[in-house]
């Protein structure tokens, strides 16, 4: 019992302290995107944990508390959604058109390509909710039988890809509408994309964050319902 407790404490303290250190570096560097705490802190912990005599199992056990905080994090998303509500209501049709076609294109294409390439069920389950913002994607994927690490990896890879390629694709295809550009970035690259679209302007940026939050809602409701429907058939 006391060993488990000590392990939990050590995992939390090590993770939190390394995070604070990583955050300091990030802020000192004027928030360079490649110094994002997610990369630096992961690398540091990866190097540090063997010295603390921690193996994977005890670290994963010890850091369980973070998954509770992930759930309260999802609940907290209600606050930005509430603040954006007037904007959402004003543009409800446009936004619905955008997130439904974007979100469905994302889910349908993932299923189709995954099926063509013969990916396994666990991988597909972690792949499906990737257009939702990370905490929501995690909770949907775990209810489908996906794994947390794979889901995080997939969400991050597709967000980075969309962040880098997105603006070129939108320019190349001559998509000029501010709403279209903001929504596309917010849906495909979530927080990173919303941030990027703020560089284009206020309207694009607002649409970027609206795209991110509304897609999270769409994914979190339609995927579990769809699965239930398929199971019923």
């Amino acid at each position: 019992m006391s060993i488990t407790f000590g392990n939990t404490l050590l995992s939390i303290v090590a993770t939190a302290l390394t995070y604070l250190f990583g955050l300091r570096i990030y802020r000192k560097s004027n928030q360079k995107s490649w110094l994002n705490p997610l990369y630096t802190v992961t690398l540091l912990l990866f190097l540090l944990l063997p010295f603390l005599h921690m193996d994977v199992k005890s670290y994963e056990k010890g850091s369980k508390i973070f998954s509770l905080l992930l759930q309260t994090g999802i609940v907290s998303l209600a606050i930005p959604i509430y603040k954006q509500f007037p904007l959402i209501r004003k543009n409800i049709k446009k936004i619905t058109v955008g997130i439904v076609s974007g979100g469905m294109a994302g889910i349908a294409s993932s299923v189709a390509f995954a099926f063509l390439l013969g990916l396994k069920g666990e991988v597909v389950a972690s792949l499906l909710p990737k257009t939702a913002t990370l905490p929501v994607a995690l909770s949907v994927s775990s209810s489908l039988g996906g794994t947390a690490p794979l889901t995080i990896l997939f969400v991050l890879i597709s967000a980075l890809f969309s962040l880098i390629v997105g603006p070129h694709v939108l320019d190349g295809c001559n998509i000029k509408s501010k709403t279209a550009r903001g929504l596309a970035m917010g849906i495909s690259a979530q927080a990173l994309g919303a941030n990027r679209s703020f560089q284009w302007g206020e309207e694009e940026g607002a649409m970027g964050s609206v795209g991110m939050t509304t897609t999270a809602i769409l994914v979190s409701v339609t995927i579990p319902m769809g699965m239930l429907f398929i199971a019923y058939l």
Binding site: S11, T15, A16, T18, Y19, N36, P37, L38, V41, T42, L45, F46, L49, V56, Y59, E60, S63, F66, S67, L69, L70, G73, L134, P135, A148, P149, L150, I152, L153
Partner: peptide, 11 residues
């Protein structure tokens, strides 16, 4: 971000 670190380290 802090909450995503443990699973990625685990991975």
């Amino acid at each position: 971000t802090l909450l995503f670190i443990p699973p990625v380290v685990g991975l």
